[in-house]
């Protein structure tokens, strides 16, 4: 075999390894470049999906913003339920049925939306609060505790309104949390407050002895 042919075969064999090496690299490394699209099929269709861009509109949103004050069909609730007040008075009683289901829902939603600042027990010691403290930027107002006399005296309507529209430096969460969930959170906040000021008389009789033992061990009084 002529030498030139042998060399050519060797070069082809080595070059053939290159695509394999590229494939191997693509399988282990991340890449910011758009995905390789081998077969297009109808992967990208000329239609607009949720949160996609539409150059026809000045703001580029394919989804148009509803007119302020729009109420989606089937979501209209009585004024008191939607605002937490009757006339100018804060509601003193939660206007939806409060049961175990609602409290559990409230606990879950509280832990998602409120606990980052207010803390899981409501003392105002959430992870975001602690980070803001560490950063010492001077722009942060410490989160209030739910267990002060003032906080405990707040009517439920006030708490609902604080979630919906924000209060002082707290931002509004009305857009993030639906009405029912906001009342569930209110119910849970009330339960949290009760839990931190509970007396032995609040505990069912059957489990009281158990608790008394624990309290003596702990040397606690409350």
């Amino acid at each position: 075999m002529p030498r030139s042919l042998k060399y050519a075969l060797a070069v082809i064999a080595v070059l053939a390894l290159l695509p394999l090496a590229l494939v191997a690299k693509a399988r282990v490394a991340t890449s910011p470049r758009p995905r390789v699209h081998l077969i297009f099929d109808m992967d990208n269709q000329p239609k607009f999906k949720a949160q996609s861009a539409n150059p026809l509109f000045a703001d580029g949103r394919a989804m148009r913003l509803p007119v302020p004050g729009t109420v989606a069909r089937g979501t209209l609730v009585p004024q008191e339920v939607a605002t937490g007040r009757k006339g100018v008075q804060w509601l003193e009683v939660i206007p939806v049925p409060v049961d175990r289901q609602l409290l559990l829902r409230g606990q879950e939603r509280y832990n998602i939306f409120c606990a980052p600042c207010h803390g899981y027990s409501g003392y105002g010691d959430g992870a975001v609060q602690r980070r803001a403290e560490r950063l010492e930027e001077g722009t942060w107002t410490p989160v209030a505790s739910f267990h002060t006399e003032t906080a405990r005296a707040r009517p439920v309507g006030y708490i609902f309104n604080a979630i919906t529209n924000g209060v002082r430096t707290m931002p509004p969460y009305g857009a993030q949390i639906p009405v029912e969930d906001r009342w569930a959170i209110v119910a849970y906040v009330k339960a949290l407050q009760r839990s931190q000021w509970a007396t032995l008389a609040d505990v069912p009789k059957e489990v009281r002895p158990q608790l008394e033992v624990r309290m003596r061990e702990h040397d606690g009084t409350r």
Binding site: V23, R27, V28, S31, P34, R35
Partner: peptide, 23 residues
């Protein structure tokens, strides 16, 4: 064999799609 391996691995979504991390 080479072509089967190349297309099999190269065209797999584990190669083309996994690891996409746009800026």
């Amino acid at each position: 064999v080479y072509l089967v391996v190349l297309v099999g691995f190269g065209a797999s979504p584990r190669t083309t799609d996994v690891g996409y991390a746009p800026e």
